[in-house]
Design a protein around this nucleic acid. Structure first.
Lengths: 194, 194
DNA sequence: ATGAATGTTGAATCATAATTCAAAAATAGT
DNA sequence: ACTATTTTTGAATTATGATTCAACATTCAT
């Protein structure tokens, strides 16, 4: 009885990130992903039901990881809400800094998922909820301006960050990731402060 | 000799916005755009060379307009840099408020244009340059924190705004446009202030 | 060595939709 | 009314690539 060779599933995901980042989801070809992964085109379908399933997994893996790691930030009681927010920003920046192509894929292709039903995928919503709980904590503690809308803030910070990281990923020599995160932190921390 | 009826070019553009917003660029069908515009499928090609050309025109029309109208803000000397920024934010919000579907298209499909060459289309860059000149003015006048990077800021504000407007456009009942702009202005104006 | 079970392959199949273009329709000029 | 010119039409053509699947390859158990 034959055994599966290597870790084709992960190879396909890694290749998917590369090809999706280079060509965009819709113009990415399964044959190219297969080639990049070093397997036959038909093999892709043994691991993923279709093209969208690859993108979906990439997405889920990322946000699952960010959800897990951001939980560690939330439970800390040695830092205040603004500091938590800074850690959250750093978490996201670090994650994408390690994989700029992933940034490009996530930012530009997320809307190709869940086109029909959910506008905001549950797993992503979980992450937003974490950001929101930090903001609410900050407003309760009087660190964050109460007149600011949590509904807007929960999206604003992460959305801004994603947008900037995408730009950085496409042209990393223009501004460093450190410069980027420094500015984002400064503006948002200052802008949120009561 | 037959004369062209109506304004098919504009009909196609309007239909394009609707169909692209609903289906995304790649899944939007020319036949659907034609149907929405009230013309024959083949007629579309008498006005636009291909599908991308429609998207490109939509994009260019928008940014050309925003460029023109933002120029009026820039030349004013009765308001300071932060106020100019507020006007710029209002300009963008108003533009998309009048056409939420356009917001969805612009935000989600811009990256499908200029995939090969320019990362930032010249006409869009013009708009960013205007934002940048306001920031530089503010830094010179001591209204805006000098330690903030112009390279980051020029993208951050508009990028954030686009992202939020996209979310609003998809679900306008969740938070009003006024609430959205109020929060963005407050955070950025506060965050930028020296 | 043989057979069963499973993995892998890549050409073939199938589906899709962008685009083309010959035919029909409409309008102005005579 | 006829002709020339232009516009419009939508079925046909073409291109593309996602997906299928029969054939082949590999591994384990006997």
């Amino acid at each position: 009885m034959r055994i599966k060779e290597g870790n084709k599933e992960q190879d396909i995901l890694d290749a998917g990130i590369k090809v999706f980042a280079a060509a965009g989801f819709h113009q990415a070809k399964i044959s190219k992903i297969a080639e990049t992964a070093g397997i036959a085109t038909g093999s892709v379908y043994l691991y993923f039901s279709n093209k969208t399933a690859i993108l979906q997994r990439i997405f889920e893996n990322l946000w699952k990881e960010l959800n897990s790691e951001s939980s560690d930030i939330l439970i800390r009681d040695d830092i205040n809400a603004l500091e938590k927010l800074e850690h959250l920003i750093d978490l996201v920046c670090d994650k994408f800094y390690n994989d700029p192509l992933l940034a490009i894929v996530i930012v530009n292709e997320q809307h190709n998922l869940f086109k029909d039903d959910e506008l905001i995928p549950p797993i992503y919503k979980q992450f937003l909820d974490k950001g929101e709980s930090i903001i609410i904590q900050g407003q309760k503690n009087g660190l964050i301006d109460n007149s600011l809308s949590v509904k807007v803030l929960r999206h604003l910070i992460i959305g801004s960050l994603k947008y900037l990281i995408d730009l950085w990923a496409k042209k990393p020599e223009e501004v460093t990731m450190n410069e980027l995160r420094r500015n984002v932190k400064k503006i948002f921390i200052t802008g949120l402060r009561k």
